[in-house]
Write a protein that binds this DNA or RNA. Structure first.
Lengths: 219, 219
DNA sequence: ACACTATTCCATAGATTAGTGGAATAGTCA
DNA sequence: TGACTATTCCACTAATCTATGGAATAGTGT
């Protein structure tokens, strides 16, 4: 009797984990962590067919990780709550610390990772108070529009070269993007440094900032 | 190129989640969170065949969640690190908060849950300092032996009735077991209250205590 | 060397999951 | 109303996962 309860309960927990057990779904969740999006949009950015995307979203919804609302023709999905972001952080953290393959990937693709001097949130707050830094959001403009760090400037990575002068005049740049493993901020900091600017990478991305309860500005 | 990195990385994270995506494996992890155990032992307590247990353990090992060491004939498995416990906590938490089926299960099997007044760790520390409480570990003695709260008394649930007198003389009882959803402490507190003792349940179990960096006593 | 034990490896049948195409649904726009 | 769009539902194939039994491996004790 109690034995059944235990089995049943673990089976339920397993459902949640199973929903996370697919790379495409994790990618969808990362996009959703930036803000609400409709199915077509998600299909486009993730490179999946619309139907397939829809099915994955259903699975995520069935285990309560996302919810949806219908507006006009579109169905907009979003994360059910910020604790989903924390769960993702947890999975990523364990994977990075204990899975050798992840270390290899990170080391080969993310330019030594620590060479770009990731800045902790606490330090950023201090710097911002002293007016020494420009906070730079290098995500696509839709994601910036859906929510971003207060006072952050949005320059999508592709347009970075055209805005070098503005950045050059305004002290050190701290760039962030979708999360700690997203390449956008890495790439941005590298390019900025290549042009002689002082630039560092924020340790976490927008979703982690928001999930930590920090203030968010939308536009 | 960067796109491949992203897909590959998410695929790796998914491997970790997939390893958690099975009730039997979650149960094995919960047992391992109590302390090191060999395959046969794990098979027995989880009700799986030895071969099957071994295969599940391999999967957990492949994604770095557990490690093993060989001693004599036996292979002993243990969690790779305490952050695996935190990951499990995270999964359970999200499931409990967002999955209706879990709420139903918890409410029907766990005696109203909050009626037993779960005590937070901070409060326990305070009480212990004042010498007002007996900390009671109701897990099987092997698990107690592998590690327990400092000063805790071990009375496995089955033997509770024989030790009522000892407990009656020593103030309030705070019982804990394998984790926040484990039935042992619930059951213990109910029985103790039924016999007229003052008893409460510790909010978390031994693994969470240990993973939080609190001191642990082994015997 | 021998029998013995605990664990792992391998092959296999049944169950589950991922992705595809066609059809159904609900809402919009003219 | 009818044409159109975004999304979901359904059916189907290929791939993956679970549990089982038989065989192999490594270590123990005699």
């Amino acid at each position: 009797m109690a034995g059944n309860f235990k089995k049943d309960l673990f089976a339920q927990f397993a459902r949640v984990a199973k929903a996370l057990g697919n790379g495409h779904r994790l990618e969808l969740l990362e996009f959703l962590a930036q803000g609400e999006r409709n199915v077509e949009d998600l299909a486009r950015v993730s490179g999946l067919s619309v139907r397939n995307t829809s099915q994955h979203l259903q699975q995520l919804r069935q285990v309560g990780l996302v919810t949806s609302r219908k507006q006009g023709l579109h169905v907009y999905y979003r994360l059910t709550s910020d604790d989903v972001v924390q769960l993702l952080q947890c999975v990523r953290g364990v994977a990075e610390r204990h899975l050798a393959d992840v270390k290899v990937l990170v080391d080969t693709y993310l330019t030594v990772k620590d060479a770009l001097e990731p800045m902790p949130v606490a330090e950023l707050l201090e710097r911002v108070r002293q007016g020494e830094v420009t906070v730079l959001d290098v995500r696509p403009s839709e994601e910036y529009a859906a929510g971003h760090l207060p006072g952050a400037v949005n320059i999508p990575l592709a347009e970075l070269e055209q805005h070098l002068d503005e950045l050059r005049d305004s002290g050190e740049v701290v760039a962030y993007c979708r999360g700690p493993h997203c390449v956008l901020a890495f790439e941005a900091v590298e390019r900025l440094r290549g042009k002689g600017l002082k630039a560092r990478r924020l340790q976490d991305g927008f979703p982690e900032w928001k999930a930590a309860g920090m203030p968010v500005e939308a536009e």
